[in-house]
Write a protein that binds this DNA or RNA. Structure first.
Lengths: 204, 204
DNA sequence: CGAAAAGTTGCAGAGTCCGCAAAACTGCTG
DNA sequence: CAGCAGTTTTGCGGACTCTGCAACTTTTCG
């Protein structure tokens, strides 16, 4: 699958990418409320009607990059050695996906801020993350010999890992920290893997 | 707060409740796609324009009962003894909130099915749960001496607990189990509290 | 009672989203 | 390479969502 490279499929993928890129860029630049489907379609050189053949809502197009990211992550996860402990695989895959360049950081922060500013986009983001979570659960189930339609484990660990990363990013984007994002993510993983023991009140 | 009981506040609360109840009922009965704002407003005896004074979207009204549930849970959580371990408090509050009557079960299943059937409602549900998560994190931070704008802990445990319950419910609603919902929730909590250790491949 | 404050309603307007059918395009096959 | 079958794009029409605004009604309180 995903190996058909006819002109047709390539064009479709290109159109989809152009639409989501345009949607995302315009949302960051102008603010979500000031972006219309018409403007997105124009920026991607297709008709407004075509936009709706690819995305069922403006918000979906804006957060489509999350879905792409999730697809890449799922692939990476599947490539990890089968005997690696699940938590190690998850941590590795997420940590490796973080772009640590200053430019990447700036972009990520602008993204998170744009998303946070609009409830409808937040909702779409959560949907995208939920989709990722489900895909992860399937992969994890296959690897751990569990069944995603019966066992809690694959869903719980996929959710815990995803939520750890999201929490670390959200907190990091608040800018109250000077710690690198990687450190925060690693700490979040450590806490969750330890079962989130009650923090020591004497600390700090 | 929440102690003003003037006629005005009571009427507002009643209108809001009537709208969300009507929205929810119609969505379950007819399916989300066949419910219009006009119909919801008519069922609650107000104008369509008034509907939008209370809810910013149809989906928000449909899942408003989740927000109410979250409010009650937050209150319950705040009432738990301050020296009870956090995990115990969370588990207690969630388990106590589950209506175990056959009628309650049937309603819950219909709810979950209605939500699952429509992407826009799923997104709204996730938003509502995210709001609950944030409120929980604040309460937990206050109790554990952590800071919700800096520390990972309160967000992680609130998310882990909420996700454990959601996962248990979703899996339970699939109907592959004959185990009671309470058991599933309790097991989910146990797994998460133990840090989600790799399951034993030799089991079953 | 009588004003101030708050809530409700209708209307107009911008915009979303979808179904449908015609037109344009791609990939084959003869 | 002509032509056909399958796919995608597009315009149009229509139903519906959502918001600002201004008038109107109701509640509150001095």
């Amino acid at each position: 699958m995903t190996v058909e490279v006819g002109l047709r499929e390539r064009k479709k993928a290109a159109t989809r990418a152009a639409l989501s890129a345009a949607a995302n860029r315009l949302a960051v630049e102008l603010g979500v409320e000031h972006v219309t489907v018409e403007a997105i379609a124009a920026a991607a050189d297709v008709s407004p009607r075509t936009f709706h053949n690819y995305f069922s809502s403006r918000e979906e197009a804006i957060v489509a990059s999350i879905v792409d990211w999730a697809d890449r992550l799922t692939d990476e996860l599947e490539k990890r050695p089968a005997d690696e402990p699940m938590w190690d695989s998850l941590q590795r895959v997420f940590l490796d996906s973080v772009d640590e360049s200053p430019d990447g950081h700036a972009r990520l922060i602008r993204q998170l801020e744009m998303i946070k500013a609009n409830p409808a986009v937040i909702a779409s983001q959560l949907s995208a993350l939920e989709t990722m979570r489900r895909r992860f659960a399937e992969t994890i189930a296959a690897r751990t010999g569990t069944d995603a339609s019966i066992d809690l484990y694959p869903h719980l660990i996929a959710g815990a890992a995803g939520h750890a990363v999201k929490t670390a990013m959200d907190l990091w984007a608040l800018g109250q920290h000077d710690r690198p994002l990687r450190d925060l993510i690693a700490e979040a993983f450590t806490l969750v893997r330890a079962g989130l023991p009650q923090p020591d009140p004497s600390r700090s």
